[in-house]
Protein backbone atom coordinates (compact mmCIF):
# COMPACT_ATOMS: atom_id res chain seq x y z
CA UNK A 1 0.00 0.00 0.00
CA UNK A 2 1.65 3.25 -1.08
CA UNK A 3 1.64 5.61 1.83
CA UNK A 4 3.52 8.70 2.77
CA UNK A 5 5.64 7.89 5.76
CA UNK A 6 5.24 10.45 8.46
CA UNK A 7 8.36 10.19 10.51
CA UNK A 8 8.57 12.20 13.66
CA UNK A 9 11.64 11.80 15.74
CA UNK A 10 11.18 12.30 19.44
CA UNK A 11 13.43 14.80 21.11
CA UNK A 12 16.62 13.34 22.49
CA UNK A 13 15.69 12.32 26.00
CA UNK A 14 18.05 11.86 28.88
CA UNK A 15 19.64 9.40 26.55
CA UNK A 16 23.10 8.08 26.81
CA UNK A 17 24.34 5.31 24.61
CA UNK A 18 22.17 3.55 22.04
CA UNK A 19 18.37 3.74 22.24
CA UNK A 20 16.74 0.90 24.13
CA UNK A 21 14.27 0.35 21.31
CA UNK A 22 14.39 1.92 17.90
CA UNK A 23 11.99 1.52 15.02
CA UNK A 24 12.64 2.61 11.48
CA UNK A 25 9.99 2.94 8.78
CA UNK A 26 8.02 0.35 10.68
CA UNK A 27 4.87 -0.81 8.94
CA UNK A 28 2.69 -3.44 10.57
CA UNK A 29 -0.31 -5.13 9.09
CA UNK A 30 -3.05 -7.51 10.10
CA UNK A 31 -4.18 -9.81 7.33
CA UNK A 32 -3.51 -7.20 4.65
CA UNK A 33 -4.85 -4.30 6.72
CA UNK A 34 -2.24 -1.74 7.63
CA UNK A 35 -2.28 -1.17 11.38
CA UNK A 36 0.83 0.98 11.76
CA UNK A 37 2.37 2.88 8.87
CA UNK A 38 5.88 4.21 8.48
CA UNK A 39 6.73 4.68 12.14
CA UNK A 40 10.25 5.88 12.88
CA UNK A 41 11.79 6.90 16.16
CA UNK A 42 13.21 5.49 19.32
CA UNK A 43 12.41 4.85 22.93
CA UNK A 44 15.38 6.20 24.84
CA UNK A 45 16.81 4.10 27.66
CA UNK A 46 15.03 4.90 30.86
CA UNK A 47 12.16 6.68 29.13
CA UNK A 48 8.58 6.30 30.27
CA UNK A 49 6.33 6.51 27.24
CA UNK A 50 2.59 6.24 26.83
CA UNK A 51 1.18 5.00 23.53
CA UNK A 52 -2.25 6.50 22.94
CA UNK A 53 -4.59 6.60 19.99
CA UNK A 54 -8.06 5.70 18.86
CA UNK A 55 -9.27 2.15 18.43
CA UNK A 56 -7.64 0.19 15.72
CA UNK A 57 -4.71 2.57 15.75
CA UNK A 58 -2.28 -0.30 15.94
CA UNK A 59 -1.16 0.27 19.50
CA UNK A 60 -1.33 -3.35 20.58
CA UNK A 61 0.21 -4.42 17.30
CA UNK A 62 3.06 -2.01 17.82
CA UNK A 63 3.72 -3.44 21.27
CA UNK A 64 3.65 -6.95 19.86
CA UNK A 65 6.13 -5.93 17.20
CA UNK A 66 8.41 -4.31 19.77
CA UNK A 67 8.33 -7.55 21.73
CA UNK A 68 9.22 -9.48 18.59
CA UNK A 69 5.88 -11.27 18.40
CA UNK A 70 4.59 -9.60 15.25
CA UNK A 71 6.61 -9.68 12.09
CA UNK A 72 6.80 -6.23 10.51
CA UNK A 73 5.48 -5.88 6.98
CA UNK A 74 8.27 -3.39 6.38
CA UNK A 75 10.91 -1.59 8.39
CA UNK A 76 12.84 -2.74 11.40
CA UNK A 77 12.74 -2.90 15.17
CA UNK A 78 16.14 -2.86 16.78
CA UNK A 79 16.82 -3.62 20.41
CA UNK A 80 19.82 -2.86 22.49
CA UNK A 81 18.88 -5.66 24.89
CA UNK A 82 17.94 -8.63 22.76
CA UNK A 83 15.46 -11.00 24.39
CA UNK A 84 15.31 -8.96 27.56
CA UNK A 85 11.86 -7.50 27.10
CA UNK A 86 8.99 -8.09 29.47
CA UNK A 87 5.53 -7.83 27.91
CA UNK A 88 2.29 -7.54 29.84
CA UNK A 89 -0.50 -8.56 27.45
CA UNK A 90 -4.05 -7.34 27.85
CA UNK A 91 -5.58 -8.92 30.91
CA UNK A 92 -8.64 -10.10 29.02
CA UNK A 93 -6.60 -12.68 27.15
CA UNK A 94 -6.00 -14.79 30.25
CA UNK A 95 -8.18 -17.70 31.30
CA UNK A 96 -9.04 -16.79 34.86
CA UNK A 97 -10.39 -20.23 35.58
CA UNK A 98 -7.04 -21.87 34.99
CA UNK A 99 -6.05 -24.09 37.91
CA UNK A 100 -2.83 -22.40 38.92
CA UNK A 101 -1.74 -20.77 42.15
CA UNK A 102 -0.56 -17.18 42.44
CA UNK A 103 3.00 -18.07 43.39
CA UNK A 104 3.28 -20.35 40.36
CA UNK A 105 2.18 -17.53 38.07
CA UNK A 106 4.84 -15.25 39.51
CA UNK A 107 7.46 -17.94 39.12
CA UNK A 108 6.75 -18.17 35.42
CA UNK A 109 8.59 -14.85 35.36
CA UNK A 110 11.81 -16.74 36.08
CA UNK A 111 11.53 -18.46 32.72
CA UNK A 112 14.51 -16.68 31.21
CA UNK A 113 16.66 -18.04 34.06
CA UNK A 114 15.11 -21.46 34.46
CA UNK A 115 13.93 -22.45 31.03
CA UNK A 116 11.70 -25.46 30.82
CA UNK A 117 13.63 -27.76 33.12
CA UNK A 118 15.77 -26.15 35.80
CA UNK A 119 14.69 -26.23 39.40
CA UNK A 120 13.33 -23.21 41.23
CA UNK A 121 16.00 -22.49 43.82
CA UNK A 122 15.06 -21.22 47.27
CA UNK A 123 16.59 -17.85 46.40
CA UNK A 124 14.38 -17.52 43.34
CA UNK A 125 11.36 -18.63 45.31
CA UNK A 126 12.18 -15.98 47.88
CA UNK A 127 12.23 -13.39 45.13
CA UNK A 128 8.85 -14.55 43.92
CA UNK A 129 7.41 -14.21 47.40
CA UNK A 130 8.96 -10.80 47.78
CA UNK A 131 7.44 -9.74 44.47
CA UNK A 132 4.02 -10.90 45.63
CA UNK A 133 4.47 -8.90 48.81
CA UNK A 134 5.60 -5.86 46.85
CA UNK A 135 2.33 -5.77 44.94
CA UNK A 136 0.31 -6.25 48.10
CA UNK A 137 -0.57 -9.91 47.59
CA UNK A 138 1.20 -11.25 50.65
CA UNK A 139 -0.39 -14.44 51.86
CA UNK A 140 -1.93 -15.22 48.48
CA UNK A 141 0.82 -17.63 47.48
CA UNK A 142 -1.33 -20.74 47.34
CA UNK A 143 -4.52 -19.08 46.18
CA UNK A 144 -5.85 -20.17 42.81
CA UNK A 145 -6.04 -17.24 40.45
CA UNK A 146 -9.75 -17.83 39.98
CA UNK A 147 -10.29 -16.33 43.41
CA UNK A 148 -8.66 -13.01 42.59
CA UNK A 149 -10.50 -9.83 41.71
CA UNK A 150 -9.63 -7.98 38.53
CA UNK A 151 -7.36 -5.59 40.37
CA UNK A 152 -5.62 -8.38 42.24
CA UNK A 153 -5.06 -10.24 39.00
CA UNK A 154 -3.34 -7.21 37.56
CA UNK A 155 -1.21 -6.92 40.71
CA UNK A 156 -0.24 -10.54 40.23
CA UNK A 157 0.86 -9.90 36.65
CA UNK A 158 2.90 -6.94 37.82
CA UNK A 159 4.58 -9.23 40.35
CA UNK A 160 5.55 -11.46 37.46
CA UNK A 161 7.00 -8.44 35.69
CA UNK A 162 8.99 -7.63 38.84
CA UNK A 163 10.42 -11.13 38.82
CA UNK A 164 11.25 -10.91 35.13
CA UNK A 165 13.51 -7.99 35.95
CA UNK A 166 13.77 -6.87 32.33
CA UNK A 167 15.37 -3.58 31.27
CA UNK A 168 12.55 -2.96 28.79
CA UNK A 169 8.95 -3.32 29.95
CA UNK A 170 5.98 -3.18 27.57
CA UNK A 171 2.51 -2.86 29.08
CA UNK A 172 -0.70 -3.29 27.10
CA UNK A 173 -3.49 -1.41 28.84
CA UNK A 174 -2.13 -2.22 32.27
CA UNK A 175 -4.74 -0.22 34.15
CA UNK A 176 -7.87 -1.51 32.45
CA UNK A 177 -10.61 -2.34 34.90
CA UNK A 178 -8.56 -1.89 38.03
CA UNK A 179 -9.72 -0.06 41.11
CA UNK A 180 -8.27 3.25 42.20
CA UNK A 181 -6.06 1.84 44.93
CA UNK A 182 -4.61 -0.76 42.61
CA UNK A 183 -4.06 1.92 40.01
CA UNK A 184 -2.08 4.00 42.49
CA UNK A 185 -0.03 1.03 43.67
CA UNK A 186 0.75 -0.18 40.18
CA UNK A 187 1.59 3.32 39.10
CA UNK A 188 4.09 3.62 41.92
CA UNK A 189 5.68 0.40 40.70
CA UNK A 190 5.85 1.94 37.25
CA UNK A 191 7.60 4.98 38.68
CA UNK A 192 9.97 2.76 40.54
CA UNK A 193 10.91 1.06 37.28
CA UNK A 194 11.30 4.45 35.71
CA UNK A 195 13.54 5.51 38.60
CA UNK A 196 15.62 2.39 38.16
CA UNK A 197 16.34 3.39 34.59
CA UNK A 198 14.18 0.81 32.89
CA UNK A 199 12.52 1.67 29.61
CA UNK A 200 8.76 1.50 29.99
CA UNK A 201 6.22 1.69 27.17
CA UNK A 202 2.53 1.49 28.04
CA UNK A 203 -0.57 1.49 25.86
CA UNK A 204 -3.16 3.60 27.63
CA UNK A 205 -6.59 5.07 27.09
CA UNK A 206 -6.83 7.46 29.98
CA UNK A 207 -5.39 10.73 28.72
CA UNK A 208 -5.49 12.34 32.16
CA UNK A 209 -3.37 9.55 33.50
CA UNK A 210 -0.98 9.98 30.60
CA UNK A 211 -0.64 13.70 31.24
CA UNK A 212 0.11 13.17 34.90
CA UNK A 213 2.31 10.14 34.92
CA UNK A 214 4.01 9.78 31.57
CA UNK A 215 6.74 12.19 30.48
CA UNK A 216 6.60 11.08 26.87
CA UNK A 217 3.77 10.13 24.59
CA UNK A 218 3.44 8.48 21.22
CA UNK A 219 0.16 9.43 19.57
CA UNK A 220 -0.74 6.77 17.07
CA UNK A 221 -3.60 6.62 14.60
CA UNK A 222 -2.12 4.21 12.10
CA UNK A 223 0.25 7.02 11.24
CA UNK A 224 2.33 8.55 13.95
CA UNK A 225 0.70 11.86 14.85
CA UNK A 226 3.22 12.87 17.46
CA UNK A 227 6.01 11.45 19.53
CA UNK A 228 7.76 13.37 22.24
CA UNK A 229 7.11 15.24 25.45
CA UNK A 230 3.55 14.57 26.52
CA UNK A 231 2.50 18.20 26.77
CA UNK A 232 3.67 18.83 23.22
CA UNK A 233 2.02 15.75 21.80
CA UNK A 234 -1.35 15.85 23.51
CA UNK A 235 -2.38 19.19 22.07
CA UNK A 236 -6.02 19.74 21.16
CA UNK A 237 -5.03 19.96 17.51
CA UNK A 238 -3.26 16.60 17.59
CA UNK A 239 -6.10 14.96 19.39
CA UNK A 240 -8.53 16.29 16.81
CA UNK A 241 -6.34 14.85 14.12
CA UNK A 242 -6.33 11.50 15.88
CA UNK A 243 -10.08 11.56 16.16
CA UNK A 244 -10.47 12.44 12.52
CA UNK A 245 -8.17 9.61 11.59
CA UNK A 246 -10.30 7.33 13.69
CA UNK A 247 -13.50 8.54 12.07
CA UNK A 248 -11.93 8.08 8.68
CA UNK A 249 -11.03 4.52 9.50
CA UNK A 250 -14.43 3.80 10.94
CA UNK A 251 -16.07 5.26 7.84
CA UNK A 252 -14.33 2.81 5.57
CA UNK A 253 -16.66 -0.08 4.91
CA UNK A 254 -13.83 -2.56 4.89
CA UNK A 255 -12.34 -1.25 8.08
CA UNK A 256 -15.17 -2.34 10.33
CA UNK A 257 -13.27 -4.99 12.11
CA UNK A 258 -9.97 -3.37 11.56
CA UNK A 259 -7.17 -4.03 13.97
CA UNK A 260 -7.06 -6.69 16.59
CA UNK A 261 -6.64 -4.39 19.54
CA UNK A 262 -8.84 -2.26 21.73
CA UNK A 263 -11.77 -4.62 21.97
CA UNK A 264 -14.79 -2.57 22.77
CA UNK A 265 -12.84 0.17 24.44
CA UNK A 266 -14.02 2.87 22.10
CA UNK A 267 -16.14 4.62 24.63
CA UNK A 268 -13.16 5.59 26.65
CA UNK A 269 -11.49 7.29 23.77
CA UNK A 270 -14.49 9.24 22.57
CA UNK A 271 -15.65 10.09 26.05
CA UNK A 272 -12.42 11.74 27.03
CA UNK A 273 -13.12 15.34 27.72
CA UNK A 274 -11.79 16.66 24.47
CA UNK A 275 -13.03 19.60 22.58
CA UNK A 276 -15.85 18.28 20.50
CA UNK A 277 -16.18 15.04 22.40
CA UNK A 278 -19.69 13.73 21.82
CA UNK A 279 -20.68 13.36 25.42
CA UNK A 280 -18.53 15.70 27.49
CA UNK A 281 -18.65 14.92 31.13
CA UNK A 282 -20.24 11.55 30.68
CA UNK A 283 -18.81 9.03 33.10
CA UNK A 284 -16.26 6.96 31.32
CA UNK A 285 -16.98 3.28 31.60
CA UNK A 286 -14.15 1.59 33.36
CA UNK A 287 -12.58 4.83 34.46
CA UNK A 288 -11.45 4.27 37.98
CA UNK A 289 -12.42 7.63 39.35
CA UNK A 290 -13.92 10.92 38.30
CA UNK A 291 -11.81 13.34 36.39
CA UNK A 292 -12.29 16.00 38.99
CA UNK A 293 -10.01 14.19 41.36
CA UNK A 294 -7.15 14.52 38.91
CA UNK A 295 -5.97 18.11 39.18
CA UNK A 296 -4.77 19.32 35.86
CA UNK A 297 -1.10 19.94 36.37
CA UNK A 298 1.35 19.76 33.51
CA UNK A 299 3.85 17.02 33.71
CA UNK A 300 7.37 18.21 34.38
CA UNK A 301 7.76 18.55 38.08
CA UNK A 302 4.16 17.83 38.78
CA UNK A 303 3.92 15.44 41.68
CA UNK A 304 1.41 12.70 41.53
CA UNK A 305 -1.59 14.14 43.30
CA UNK A 306 -2.13 12.66 46.69
CA UNK A 307 -4.71 10.01 46.53
CA UNK A 308 -8.05 11.18 47.80
CA UNK A 309 -8.88 8.02 49.63
CA UNK A 310 -7.85 7.03 53.12
CA UNK A 311 -4.59 5.23 53.29
CA UNK A 312 -5.47 2.27 55.39
CA UNK A 313 -2.94 0.02 53.77
CA UNK A 314 -3.79 -3.13 55.54
CA UNK A 315 -2.23 -5.97 53.67
CA UNK A 316 -5.60 -7.53 53.39
CA UNK A 317 -7.69 -4.68 52.18
CA UNK A 318 -7.70 -5.80 48.60
CA UNK A 319 -10.07 -8.70 48.48
CA UNK A 320 -13.79 -8.20 48.57
CA UNK A 321 -13.14 -4.54 49.29
CA UNK A 322 -10.95 -4.23 46.26
CA UNK A 323 -13.28 -1.82 44.64
CA UNK A 324 -12.86 1.87 44.74
CA UNK A 325 -13.80 3.45 48.02
CA UNK A 326 -16.50 5.79 46.86
CA UNK A 327 -17.20 7.84 49.97
CA UNK A 328 -14.26 10.13 50.51
CA UNK A 329 -13.18 10.45 46.89
CA UNK A 330 -14.42 13.99 46.59
CA UNK A 331 -12.51 16.65 44.77
CA UNK A 332 -11.11 19.27 47.03
CA UNK A 333 -11.14 17.09 50.08
CA UNK A 334 -7.90 17.15 52.00
CA UNK A 335 -5.90 14.12 51.07
CA UNK A 336 -4.83 11.96 53.95
CA UNK A 337 -1.11 11.28 54.18
CA UNK A 338 0.04 8.55 51.89
CA UNK A 339 2.87 6.29 52.76
CA UNK A 340 3.15 4.13 49.75
CA UNK A 341 3.54 6.37 46.73
CA UNK A 342 7.21 6.71 47.48
CA UNK A 343 7.52 4.23 50.28
CA UNK A 344 7.09 1.05 48.32
CA UNK A 345 9.45 -1.71 49.23
CA UNK A 346 12.64 -1.35 47.31
CA UNK A 347 14.38 -4.55 48.16
CA UNK A 348 13.41 -6.09 44.85
CA UNK A 349 15.46 -5.31 41.86
Amino acid sequence: MPAPAIALTPPPGPAHGPPALAVRDLTLSHGGQVAVRGLSGCFAPGSLTAVVGPNGAGKTTLLQALAGLHRPAAGTVSLSHPARIALLPQAATLDRGFPIACLDVVELGHWSRLGPFRRVTPALRQRSRAALAAVGLEGHERRPIGSLSGGQMQRLLFARLLVQDAPVILLDEPFNAVDARTLADLLSLLRRWHGEGRTVVAVLHDLDLVRHAFPETLLLACDCLGWGATAEVLTPANRRRARMARDWWAGEPWADDHGADDHGAGARWTDASWPGAPRPGAPRPGAPRPDASWPDTPWPGAPWPDAPWPDDRRAGDHGAGDRRPTGPAMPGMPAPPRADAAGRPHHLT
Binding site: H140, R143, S149, D312, R313, R314, G316, G319
Partner: peptide
Protein backbone atom coordinates in the same frame (compact mmCIF):
# COMPACT_ATOMS: atom_id res chain seq x y z
CA UNK B 1 -14.46 -21.36 49.47
CA UNK B 2 -12.05 -18.87 48.06
CA UNK B 3 -14.57 -16.26 47.15
CA UNK B 4 -15.91 -15.95 50.64
CA UNK B 5 -12.58 -15.29 52.34
CA UNK B 6 -10.43 -13.04 50.23
CA UNK B 7 -8.80 -11.09 53.02
CA UNK B 8 -5.35 -12.20 54.05
CA UNK B 9 -5.42 -9.29 56.46
CA UNK B 10 -7.61 -11.46 58.60
CA UNK B 11 -4.65 -13.72 59.19
CA UNK B 12 -3.23 -13.55 62.68
CA UNK B 13 0.12 -11.89 62.95
CA UNK B 14 -0.39 -9.19 60.36
CA UNK B 15 -1.32 -6.05 62.19
CA UNK B 16 -3.55 -3.79 60.15
CA UNK B 17 -1.98 -0.64 58.89
CA UNK B 18 1.46 -2.11 58.53
CA UNK B 19 2.85 -1.32 55.12
CA UNK B 20 3.56 -4.46 53.23
CA UNK B 21 7.26 -4.89 52.99
Amino acid sequence: GWETDPTPGARPGVPPGRPSR
